[in-house]
């Protein structure tokens, strides 16, 4: 980890085929510790597939994934989460029939109980304190006892991000967190992402260019399974290739 540029994540020739479709084609990608990187690209570009391989939700067809210098290509998703790679789904994914409190407490419990004995015992006091802190942070303290599935859409999204943040990840992958949110909710989530970024590396997939330009210092553009450009927001905005893809020329 003492390398000059301190790369937290790297993929080498990472590929995924779904039958005849090459959703991700031999992607070489590097992410530095502390970055807030955005990945953009048109629908079907392979963004979700790419980050799903990083989180372990999808097995690559070929290629390698290296996290903090360790080859994690074969590692199970739950172990990667335990290592600090945490993914939030493009489609909101929470425990709809459980209360908001129970949702968050499941995430906090996972972090507190990482020992072997931990599955039978956790410090309930500590658990409660931490859950409360998270609820406060995502602004859902008053909704703690409410069933998660009955929350308004925007609050469900906040809860979903709250679950990720309760795990205290090293690398947080957010897959289109702004999708379906109202303007004021977007501001709220943006504020949260900025705050989260102070402590950790974030990989953000986002269609909303305004959000991307405001948050990210570096942008990666994907199209048809490949990275077609990478650079600062200014560089990307001026990139002919990117304009072609986005304007459909």
């Amino acid at each position: 980890m003492a390398s000059v540029d301190d790369v937290i994540l790297e993929t080498r020739a990472l590929s995924k085929r779904f039958g005849g479709l090459e959703a991700v084609r031999s992607v070489d990608f590097r992410l530095e510790r502390g970055e807030l990187r955005a990945i953009i690209g048109p629908n079907g570009a392979g963004k979700t597939t790419f980050v799903s391989m990083i989180s372990g939700r999808i097995r690559p067809s070929s290629g390698r994934i290296i996290f903090e210098g360790r080859d994690i290509t074969k590692m199970k998703a739950h172990d990667r989460a335990g290592m600090g790679i945490v993914y939030t789904f493009q489609i909101i994914n929470i425990f709809r029939n459980l209360s908001v409190y129970e949702n968050v407490s499941l995430a906090v419990q996972r972090r507190l109980a990482s020992g072997r004995a931990g599955i039978f015992r956790v410090d309930e006091e500590e658990l409660h304190r931490e859950v409360d802190a998270i609820l406060k942070r995502i602004g859902l303290r008053d909704a703690a006892e409410q069933e998660a599935g009955s929350l308004p859409y925007g609050h469900q999204r906040l809860l979903d991000i709250g679950l990720a943040l309760a795990l205290n990840p090293k690398l947080l992958i957010l897959d289109e967190p702004m999708q379906g949110l109202a303007i004021n909710e977007i501001d709220e989530v943006m504020r949260m992402i900025r705050e989260l970024h102070r402590e950790r590396t974030i990989l953000l997939i986002e269609h909303n260019m305004q959000v991307v330009l405001e948050l990210a210092k570096k942008i990666t553009v994907m199209d048809k399974g490949s990275i077609i450009a990478e650079g600062t927001p200014e560089e990307i905005e001026g990139n002919i290739e990117v304009q072609k893809v986005y304007l459909g020329l």
């Binding site: 989180s55 939700r57 199970k76 998703a77 739950h78 172990d79 989460a81 335990g82 945490v86 993914y87 789904f89 994914n93 929470i94 425990f95 709809r96 029939n97 459980l98 499941l106 995430a107 996972r110 679950l163 795990l167």
Partner: peptide, 16 residues
């Protein structure tokens, strides 16, 4: 209960 309710999410929270 988390597994019963949503196995995929439980796994992504890091549970085996």
């Amino acid at each position: 209960v988390a597994i019963r309710e949503n196995e995929e999410r439980a796994e992504m929270l890091g549970y085996n």
